[in-house]
C-alpha cells in the first residue's frame, strides 16, 4: 500500500464526517532550491560487447522552460524508450553534444569513445558514445572512464570486473486454478559464495515486454551468506509466458547507487520517507560506471 493511500486511510474518519467532496489535495506553486545541472553518465561494460556510454544532463525538477543556450540534440519522440513506473512515451532526452569520453582498459590502453548518438534497436536504450572493439575482461580487472565537456565538467570513475555467480535453477509453479485464473510464479535460486560480501541485482523479464522488467530485486548476502538463496515471485505470470531471469553480481558501489536511486524515487509521495541523495559510482557528476557480469536463464511457463 502506497503511503498516500495509507494517509487516506488514516483520514478516513475525517472524510466520513467532512462535507462531501471535501478535497484534501491541491496543486500548489513551490519554489524549489536553485539547481545547477550536472553531467549524468551511464556506462555498463560487458565482456564481448563494444563499450557504449550515455551522457545526458540533469535538469531542474520543475524546469522553467527557458532555453539554457546549451548545445543539445533532441531525439525524435517516437523512438524514445518508455519510461518506467508506468509512464508512457513522450519524454524527450536532451543530449549534450560537447562531451568527449575516454575509456582506460585494464592494460592501461586509453580508448576514445566517439560521439555517435543512437538507440539500440534491441534494448531500446539511448547511447551517445561508442567504442570500436568488443571488450575482453577477467574478474578483478579494472577499467576507468573519463568524461568531460567544453564547459568544465569532468566526470571520472573506475569499475572492477565482478566474479561470475551462476544461477542454479529457475523453476516455476502454477497456482492450481484453471481457466483465466491460472497463474504461475517464478523461483530463481543461486548459491552465494561465503568468503566475500556479495551484492546482487535480479531482473525478471517477460518475452511479451522484453524491455520492461517484470520484477527486480536488489539484494545483499547479509542474511544468506554462503547459502543457497531462493527469490520468489507471487503467482502473476500467464501460462505460455517466456520468462528470463538475469542475475547480476555487482560491485558494492553499484549496489549503493541503485539503493539510493530506489530511496530517492520512493520518497516522492511518502511523508514518512527520508529522501536519499544519489550515491553515484562516479565523481564529478551523477550516474554509474560499472561492469555487468550476469547469468541468464529462460523458462517457458507451460
Amino acid at each position: 500500500m502506497k503511503a498516500k493511500q495509507l494517509v487516506a486511510a488514516i483520514g478516513l474518519g475525517s472524510l466520513l464526517l467532512a462535507a462531501a467532496g471535501c478535497n484534501l489535495e491541491k496543486e500548489v506553486d513551490v519554489v524549489l532550491p536553485a539547481y545547477t545541472p550536472e553531467l549524468v553518465v551511464e556506462c555498463y561494460l560487458q565482456a564481448g560487447q563494444v563499450p557504449r556510454l550515455t551522457v545526458v544532463e540533469s535538469g531542474a525538477y520543475l524546469p522553467t522552460r527557458v532555453d539554457t543556450g546549451q548545445p543539445t540534440i533532441t531525439l525524435p519522440t517516437a523512438t524514445t524508450p518508455t519510461l518506467g513506473l508506468g509512464l508512457p512515451n513522450g519524454i524527450t532526452i536532451q543530449l549534450p553534444v560537447d562531451v568527449t569520453a575516454r575509456l582506460t582498459l585494464p592494460s592501461g590502453q586509453v580508448v576514445p569513445l566517439r560521439f555517435a548518438p543512437g538507440i539500440d534497436p534491441v534494448t531500446r536504450k539511448v547511447f551517445t558514445h561508442i567504442g570500436t572493439t568488443p571488450l575482453a575482461m577477467q574478474p578483478g580487472q579494472r577499467f576507468a572512464l573519463d568524461v568531460r565537456d567544453t564547459r568544465g565538467h569532468n566526470v571520472t570513475g573506475t569499475a572492477s570486473v565482478p566474479t561470475f555467480i551462476p544461477i542454479d535453477t529457475v523453476r516455476y509453479g502454477f497456482n492450481g486454478l484453471s481457466g483465466g485464473d491460472r497463474r504461475a510464479n517464478v523461483v530463481t535460486r543461486w548459491t552465494d559464495p561465503a568468503a566475500t560480501a556479495n551484492f546482487y541485482y535480479l531482473l525478471l523479464n517477460n518475452s511479451r515486454e522484453p524491455n520492461d522488467d517484470a520484477g527486480d530485486y536488489l539484494l545483499n548476502d547479509q542474511l544468506f551468506n554462503g547459502q543457497t538463496y531462493t527469490a520468489l515471485t507471487t503467482f502473476r505470470f500467464m501460462p505460455g509466458d517466456t520468462m528470463t531471469a538475469t542475475l547480476f553480481h555487482m560491485e558494492p558501489q553499484y549496489y549503493n547507487f541503485l539503493q539510493s536511486v530506489e530511496g530517492a524515487v520512493r520518497a516522492n509521495g511518502n511523508p514518512f520517507a527520508q529522501p536519499a541523495r544519489i550515491r553515484s559510482t562516479v565523481q564529478g557528476g551523477l550516474g554509474v560506471f560499472t561492469v555487468l557480469v550476469s547469468d541468464r536463464r529462460t523458462v517457458i511457463l507451460e
Partner: peptide
C-alpha cells in the same frame, strides 16, 4: 524536496526511471 532530476535508463531489460536529485 527535489531540486533536480535525471533519466536513468538502467541495464538492458530494466525500466527507465526519472530520478529526483535532492
Amino acid at each position: 524536496l527535489p531540486a533536480g532530476r535525471f533519466p536513468l535508463q538502467n541495464v538492458p531489460g530494466g525500466d527507465l526511471l526519472a530520478v529526483p536529485v535532492y
